[in-house]
Design a protein around this nucleic acid. Structure first.
Lengths: 156, 156
DNA sequence: TTGGAATAGTTTCATTATGCAACCAAATCA
DNA sequence: TGATTTGGTTGCATAATGAAACTATTCCAA
């Protein structure tokens, strides 16, 4: 990853998102938190990340407001905040892409709702419910665009 | 990022997905490809990534089948393959998360379809159309689960 | 109450990746 | 023909990572 300051200064939500979770281990830790893990050693065993790296990632995730430290100070629980839970669509979309393109359509993990109803492929659609594909998607300057971003997107 | 070999060996589609795109710059390059950029120097200017790093990332993305090299050998175009285009839902989901949680709900980039219809927030739903949230989502062993993964998921 | 194991880290150090700048070669422009 | 643009590569200093050893509490059990 680039130095965090650079990326988060770029006027792009994706860059800002990646400055929080754009690291190989971070999304795996968040996935484990969705799986229900909450202890340091469980995260460590599940993902195999080195302990010192895990400590730093947890610290960064707490600083970013994605995890919250709960319980005893010496043996804390790490739990997803609302901001962390809001990553579910991105996480599931990435898992599905991995299922389809890197696991031969043979998912190691099945995602369902509480009743066991299997999730459908995550899609992009308009508020009118029309599917948006790579062929039809368009990007334009949004309300938060700075002049440079606006100029760049207008040129396309 | 962890060494690519480790992550891609983990029996997890997310880990495998991240071994392709789980690097700070890679998704930005893919975003730029969705924006329509296709030249080395355009990617470089847009994201600000160092030229040597960009060269390596492009090579890795081609090796992963996400980009394809087209046109002249000395001045190639880099274009998304079908596999690359399939990343749209994950990309949009991450952008929307960044919009909501890191850009004060003021998106620098607006995503629309070809007619300008604004995209809705990407959601996870069952094939029956029921919304799946962080509170209701469940993870179970899938058809591709190895014994270790299955045991882990069963314990939860 | 004392010894052992588990938890949650921190520290150290070798290896690897990154970022910058300079350099190079082919193609294009003037 | 000479200058500029494009698409890289190379070398080097700096930063991040990974493995292993170490520390400090806490928990458990005899």
């Amino acid at each position: 990853m680039p130095p965090k300051s650079d990326l988060s200064l770029l006027n792009c939500s994706l860059a800002r998102a990646l400055s929080c979770v754009g690291d190989g281990w971070t999304l795996l830790i968040i996935r484990d938190a969705f799986f229900g893990l909450s202890r340091f050693s469980d995260f460590q065993k599940s993902s195999g990340v080195a302990r010192n790296i895990l400590a730093r990632r947890l610290e960064a995730l707490i600083a970013a407001g994605i995890l919250r430290r709960e319980g005893s100070d010496t043996r804390p629980l790490y739990r997803l905040t609302e901001k962390g839970r809001a990553l579910l669509p991105a996480l599931v979309a990435l898992m599905q892409w991995g299922d389809r393109w890197e696991s031969n359509d043979c998912p190691p993990v099945a995602v369902t709702d509480a009743e066991g109803g299997v999730v459908a492929p995550v899609r992009v659609e308009t508020s009118a419910g029309e599917a948006v594909t790579a062929e039809t998607v368009r990007f334009a300057a949004g309300p938060g665009a700075d002049p440079r971003t606006a100029a760049f997107l207008a040129r396309r």
